[in-house]
Design a protein around this nucleic acid. Structure first.
Lengths: 182, 182
DNA sequence: TCGAACATGTAAAAGGTTACATGATTAC
DNA sequence: GTAATCATGTAACCTTTTACATGTTCGA
């Protein structure tokens, strides 16, 4: 699954412009997939070439003109195929956990900064997910996705808070590689 | 943070070959970062060029010869810099949640298959993390990283299990786009 | 008039995966 | 002899990010 697939999926939900798709990505997918304009616009171009979507220009009323994309029948078929044939997997890339892994090499100040930054990152994410989970418009699948997100972020945050002080106290006392003098 | 940084970090823990590093990635980092030989070997080449690591060939006793890499002082410095200057963030890319998002487009059989595959995926991950969390050799940071992983995967699994049956029952009854006939 | 939001794109570079290519050694 | 594990690497391809480039419309 890539940005192209996600664009196709988004257009299965209704017509949209590249700009709309970016907003929807942020609002709906951001907790499990990212995408920038630099990947969305080229994807829309390729999908149009492939006949999976169609574009028309809509005059903007009090706004710039925009290109509205619609999915074609071939596009719906293609997305259905992706959805049924994709092997569901999950990847996490966490710089935070990398830094934590090498915590023994860091000064305590930096470790504290990292832990606190991550705490507030999780708090923000959690608050956002909680704010959207109860919208009536969600299908059961979408709601479950958000609930899984809430549970996972909440668990991370709880674990971090539960061990934070002990980690920092121990860290202050423990001997470590003094790399700052290099 | 990229594979190159992770290689550098790994070599801060001790000398290793490309093959060793791949094994360590699987054992220690796999729950928050991936890496294949196709990215590890080129990284080691570039790091050597940059003088951040050094290679020597070790004769294999009952095994093929291997290239053992050691970190240099410049390499330690560079990794320390990365560690102190990197902004900790976290990205998730979950095909599973994408499929769940579009669950209404799928036949119930497929949805059930996806949910069950994900359940067993989480179970495997959880069992693995639980098997390594109590090793004495872990530093406090490494252990906290594993505990955060356990908490997050456990929470995902619990939420999935709690809602699974309801999701599938509702799904069977709900009207959906019949795309299979396209 | 100036900033914010709306709106669309391109190009270079980075980063990574997959498949390919090769070969040693051990245990069955 | 053959499968598994150890071991190193390359090349083509894919995807995505970042930075750039441009322009509209509205409200303060």
């Amino acid at each position: 699954m890539n940005v192209s697939d996600l664009c196709l999926g988004t257009l299965c939900l209704g017509d949209a412009s590249g700009y709309d798709i970016k907003k929807l990505f942020e609002a709906a997918f951001s907790h499990f997939h990212g995408a920038s304009y630099g990947s969305i616009y080229p994807s829309l171009g390729k999908l149009t070439e492939q006949g999976l979507i169609e574009a028309r220009t809509e005059a903007g009323i009090g706004k710039p003109d925009r290109k509205l994309y619609s999915i074609t029948e071939a596009g719906e078929q293609a997305f259905y195929k992706t959805l049924t044939e994709a092997e569901p997997d999950e990847q996490i890339r966490s710089d935070f956990l990398v830094i934590l892994f090498f915590a023994h090499m860091l000064p305590t100040d930096r470790l504290q900064q990292v832990v606190e930054r991550m705490e507030s990152h999780y708090e923000t994410k959690l608050a956002y997910l909680r704010s959207i989970v109860d919208l009536e418009s969600h299908s059961a699948g979408i709601r479950l996705g958000i609930e899984i997100g809430i549970a996972a972020v909440g668990a991370r945050l709880d674990t971090l808070r539960a061990h934070k002080d002990q980690l920092l106290t121990h860290h202050r006392e423990a001997p470590k590689c003094d790399l700052s003098s290099l």
